[in-house]
Design a binder for these strands. Structure first.
Ligand SMILES: [Mn+2]
Ligand SMILES: [Mn+2]
Ligand SMILES: [Zn+2]
Ligand SMILES: [Zn+2]
Lengths: 154, 154
DNA sequence: TTATCTCTGGATAATAATTATCCATAACAC
DNA sequence: GTGTTATGGATAATTATTATCCAGAGATAA
């Protein structure tokens, strides 16, 4: 009955507050450019790319450099406030709503990335650690395929 | 009872035959350089990098170019004979023994990559497909942490 | 408000893995 | 063996990301 919309852990507002606090509490300045980037990350549900963030920020501050986007993302990564999905073949994508490892489903045609609900990773991590002797710190799980929209257009 | 050694689907010999057949049957030539690369991929269990393959091949054919390694790996990927593990931050690693999606455990300190035994991915894939509406074609699952050796050296 | 001090943004160069290009030559079917 | 054509080697090009540099914005206190 209820939608297939995926509610984040917290709403965008709360996430923005968390990010701002993470910066402020460590003495980082809240500049207009940074604020704009944080807002985009906190509100977006589509795992934006560096380019798309840059485009959005430039709509408000036209002189914004690409380097500023990269710098801010690097900072947020260090503070654990954003999850980077790095890809070998194309640019990275970022999740500011769930800055911790979680599965993703990626459309290989249009590039859409969505967050499925899932829990079973923790048990699997446990098993892996047990069997291999590794002390596992994090993981990355991507599913690839065609989204419903792109299936129609086939 | 049985060892913790990880037996590949087939032994190196058989894998080499499969790869050679995949090339021959489609009209690709078996050059000394290609043969050397295939042997390395078929025998190695450590998910070699382009650089390490290059180094090994050059030991036999000193004039071998890095481009040749890349070309051969691209070809084998197209034929489904090697699995590429692409990383955003460092070079790719390759699995010639299990050229299909399977989990990996990666040491973030020394770069070791091992194949754990695991089955539970297929059920998880099923769930994901069901819940998201995606038609899932493949996946990628990496666990990151410290290998037993690097834990000791901490 | 003003002075001071440091952090940050913008411009641009540098980096590094991978891919593209070019052509002499090795592979292989005949 | 010969002829055709794919392949190897050298090298340039590509592209996402990082490093560098410095003017100026933001914080802070007088
Ligand atoms: Mn996500
Ligand atoms: Mn493997
Ligand atoms: Zn799509
Ligand atoms: Zn290690």
């Amino acid at each position: 009955m209820k939608s297939d919309r995926q509610p984040p852990m917290t709403d965008g507002k709360q996430r923005l507050e968390n990010m701002l606090e993470a910066l402020k509490s460590r003495g980082y300045r809240i500049t207009p450019q940074r604020l704009a980037i944080l807002k985009i990350l906190a509100q977006s549900r589509g795992h934006p790319s560096v380019e798309s963030i840059h485009k959005e920020v430039k709509a408000v501050f036209p002189t914004t450099s690409l380097a500023t986007i990269y710098k801010t993302l690097t900072l947020l990564k260090e503070l654990g406030q954003v999850l980077e999905l790095g890809f070998a073949d194309w640019g990275s994508r970022y999740d500011g709503n769930r800055p911790y490892p979680h599965p993703h489903i990626i459309c290989t045609k249009c590039g859409a990335i969505v967050d499925p609900e899932s829990e079973s990773m923790s048990v699997m991590t446990q098993e892996m650690s047990q069997a291999s002797g590794f002390r596992i710190t994090h993981h990355r799980l991507d599913f690839f395929g065609l989204c419903p929209q792109c299936q129609k257009e086939e």
